[in-house]
Design a protein around this nucleic acid. Structure first.
Length: 787
DNA sequence: AAGCGGATTTTTTTT
DNA sequence: AAATCCGCTT
């Protein structure tokens, strides 16, 4: 990064004492007494900017100007001379957020902001710290950062080395455990024995330790280590911790609700000394609990940092009245929250619409029609987003958009550097750069296929382990023996010669030229050119992009660093398109019009989230709904379908409880079949949420299971074997199903499932044994009584 | 060593 | 329905 040349700045002498009282600082403060950057802030925002000393928690609801507060606060610290740019630690979660913040600070106070060398993600800052003190935690400063795939490969090796059946105890699962431990700041020695023992008959802790040992041998770390090793470093070397505590006069954290325990500990160590820690976040937007984020961190802030100032930003500058009230009403149903009430001075605007569709295809069709109508009214497509709960919902919507010729773009998906072709290309470069990189070598030794399969690799491994040398070294030895069959032996020899040649090349050619050559001569480019699958062209495109982007870096080392932590696909596509993404990917974005399909029980709230995390899971799902709604500036449109195919099977579904959580005055029901009438649906849920009944096997699975195993007669069923609370019946049936009067034993005809016999009546839901389709639960409006 | 076919699995995703 | 994985065959 560019270092600031503007003025003397104690950037590299960590021991240099702060200079807030210095003449230069005071002089600089005097230059800008008016602080023009503070203009236009509302009182709360201004308070958040000016409360520079001590712990501060800024609870910033959606659309309340959070980023503005954060950037202005940094500008304020610098402009008033309270700190040099290099003395401010500013942490974000994504590189994108870090980049945007840097840009915005620059636009407020100019290029001084370039001197903020400690603005970045937890991981990039952790990397920086570790590289400086690598030897103290048993690494060399040029350690490599492993991606998920390398990690998995390594774990497989560890599991096998311990003589454990990888099929019974999959590496993926172990990776999950280790990841979880690292998220919680636990090293191999700190994991509770009972917990570690749950994996592989008590070998969990041992595998964790073995994995860490292997990482050290390879001079590698995984993402979790970037934080964990910092913790260890600081705990074991208080003098070094002190240097950092002195350096970081002010600390800021964005999206605090997403921090995990390790990150919390990391921050706490640093903040202990000066306590100038400002955390900005929104407990109502915590949606990453499933990957270790602890909402508790934000809920407990005042407790953890006594004397903390808490500032609430509740003025929303994004959405119109109805949307905001709908979102507020929804989130108010959550128990565990600090409580904020968003308000707007904007007009009420359109109500949030709720549309019932017959099935998911119908739903996609309705959305497509509305988009076309909006487009016809000159609504820019780039201001329209469709937010889904799970990626699987995208396909049908994409199909529809393609049919209609509506241009769209999918946001999210696999990251550029996670793609196989990029990882492969990088692996080649890693081996050229550092032949001892076993993981990289193993990855590409047989890509493209050269006939060096498992058997050959095994031989290499055996020698490498016996002689305690890297695989490449072992390979050099083996090709001189006759241990391998002639063919693989010759192939391997050729490959080694190639690597030698490429390494020489890198002395004279530029990095990107070397990459180009390696990819061509190794046959890698060729492999994709011969590939006839649909995405082969895209992959070649990505490889080109990779080679091109290398030109911007002085050496391979810094490029690899960049790529393992930062690199993203370039999204410089400015064409007019509708955006399609998951709700998770939508956080932080906003659009004029937002479509929210799939608000059905089981899908959203997601059944699995409920099964695995109970009430906490439900609340996180509700926060997700809240995030979805608050993405909309002027129009939010909710959809649900009565039939949806899940894993290839048609299921009839029931509107999400979140639909019922919306205040009636802020919504309008469109095209809803009679029985979806809003007032009624809130009273006749299939199964009101009540802890115990939702605990384990998912309601739907339980339902399905019951349907398939319980083939007893009516008597058993009629005698009230229905689990869970008793539902209000009768009244609504009479009201909504009018003359139909469905009764147990009656014959009905369903548009999709054909004829069947009613097994049970439950409000406006019927359990029907269909002649062809088996037992299903359907809404009575979708069947006709048969004579 | 590689490729086919049956079996199994199926959320959300950053670094 | 689809994609991925695993094991068996060639």
């Amino acid at each position: 990064m560019n270092q600031s040349e503007q003025r003397p700045d104690p950037q590299d002498s960590l021991a240099h004492e702060p200079a807030s009282g210095s003449l230069s600082a005071r002089a600089r403060a005097a230059v800008a007494p008016q602080s023009p950057y503070l203009n236009g802030l509302n009182p709360e925002q201004r308070a958040a900017v000016e409360a520079t000393e001590g712990p501060v928690l800024v609870l910033a609801g959606a659309g309340t100007g959070k980023t503005r507060v954060l950037t202005t606060r940094i500008a304020h610290l610098i402009a008033t001379g309270k700190a040099y740019p290099s003395q401010i630690l500013a942490v974000t979660f994504t590189n994108k957020a870090a980049r945007e913040m840097r840009e915005r600070i620059t636009s407020v106070i100019g290029p001084v902001a370039e001197g903020m060398q400690w603005l970045g993600t937890f991981h990039s800052i952790g990397t920086k710290v570790l590289r400086r003190h690598a030897e103290l935690v048993g690494l060399r400063s040029d350690f490599t950062i492993l991606g998920t795939d390398d990690q998995l490969r390594l774990m497989k090796q560890v599991i096998e080395a311990e003589g454990i059946d990888e099929k019974r105890w999959p590496a993926r699962q172990l990776a999950g455990h280790i990841d979880g431990w690292k998220n919680r700041g636990l090293g191999p020695d700190q994991v509770a024995a009972g917990e570690a023992g749950a994996f592989a008959n008590g070998k969990g802790g041992r595998l964790y330790r073995a994995y860490q040992d292997r990482l050290k041998t390879l001079n590698a770390v995984d993402f979790g280590d970037l934080l964990l090793e910092c913790l260890r470093l600081w705990r074991e070397h208080p003098d070094i911790l002190e240097q950092y505590q002195n350096r970081f006069r002010y600390m800021l954290v964005d999206e605090y609700q997403d921090t995990n325990v390790a990150q919390y500990l990391w921050l706490r160590l640093l903040a202990q000394a000066r306590k100038n820690l400002c955390c900005v976040g929104d407990d109502d937007q915590s949606i990453y609990g499933w990957r270790g984020a602890e909402v508790d961190n934000i809920l407990r802030f005042e407790h953890d940092f006594p004397g903390a100032t808490v500032i609430r930003l509740e003025r929303n500058y994004r959405s119109t009245g109805h949307i905001l009230s709908a979102a507020s009403g929804l989130i108010a149903k959550n128990q565990g929250r600090l409580g904020k009430t968003l308000r707007t001075e904007d007009e009420p605007g359109e109500k949030v619409s709720i549309t019932g569709a017959w099935d998911s295809e119908d739903e996609a069709r309705l959305i497509g029609e509305e988009i076309e109508a909006l487009h016809a009214k000159k609504h820019p497509l780039s201001e329209i987003a469709i937010l889904v709960r799970i990626s699987a919902q995208m396909r049908e919507i994409e199909d529809r958009l393609v049919t209609l010729g509506v241009p769209y773009r999918v946001i999210g998906g696999p990251r550029f550097y996670e793609r196989a072709e990029i990882r492969d290309a990088l692996a080649y470069l890693r081996v050229v750069n550092q032949p001892a990189d076993d993981l990289a070598f193993e990855r590409i030794v047989n890509v493209p296929k050269r006939g060096l399969g498992d058997a050959t690799i095994q031989v290499l491994h055996n020698h490498a382990r016996a002689a305690r040398v890297p695989l490449v070294e072992a390979a050099r030895f083996i090709v001189e023996t006759d241990e391998l069959k002639p063919k693989p032996r010759a192939t391997l020899r050729d490959l080694l010669i190639s690597f030698g040649r490429w390494a020489k090349l890198s002395e004279t050619l530029s990095q990107s030229e070397v990459a180009q050559t390696v990819l061509e001569e190794s046959g890698y480019t060729d492999m994709w050119q011969k590939d006839k699958s649909a995405d082969a062209a895209g992959r070649l495109e990505n490889l080109k992009e990779l080679v091109r982007s290398m030109e911007e870096f002085p050496d391979l080392q810094s490029f690899l660093e960049h790529v393992s932590l930062v690199m993203e696909a370039n999204e410089s596509d400015t064409t007019e398109r509708v955006s399609l993404m998951t709700l998770h990917a939508a956080k932080g974005l906003e659009f004029d019009t937002v479509f929210l399909p799939g608000w059905e029980e089981g899908l959203f709230p997601n059944q699995r989230a409920l099964d695995e995390s109970g009430r906490a899971g439900l609340e996180e799902e509700r926060r997700l709904a809240h995030v979805g709604l608050t993405r909309a500036r002027r129009r939010a449109k909710i959809f649900f379908a009565s039939n949806r195919r899940i894993h290839g099977l048609w299921n009839s579904t029931v509107p999400s409880r979140f639909v019922d959580d919306l205040p009636e005055t802020n919504v309008e029901i469109l095209e809803a079949p009679a029985n979806f009438s809003y007032g009624g649906s809130r009273f006749d849920r299939m199964q009101p949420f009540s802890g115990s009944s939702y605990q384990t096997p998912g309601w739907q699975r339980a339902q399905a299971h019951r349907a398939s195993t319980d083939d007893g007669g009516y008597s058993a069923r009629r005698s009230g074997d229905r689990r869970g609370p008793v539902l209000i019946e009768g009244e609504l049936v009479a009201k909504s199903s009018g003359g139909s009067g469905f009764a147990v034993g009656g014959r009905v005809l369903h548009t999709k499932f054909g004829p069947g016999t009613i097994e049970a009546v439950d409000g406006n839901k019927l359990t029907v044994e269909f002649d062809k389709a088996g037992r299903k639960m359907v809404l009575d409006s979708f069947v006709k009584a048969m004579g």
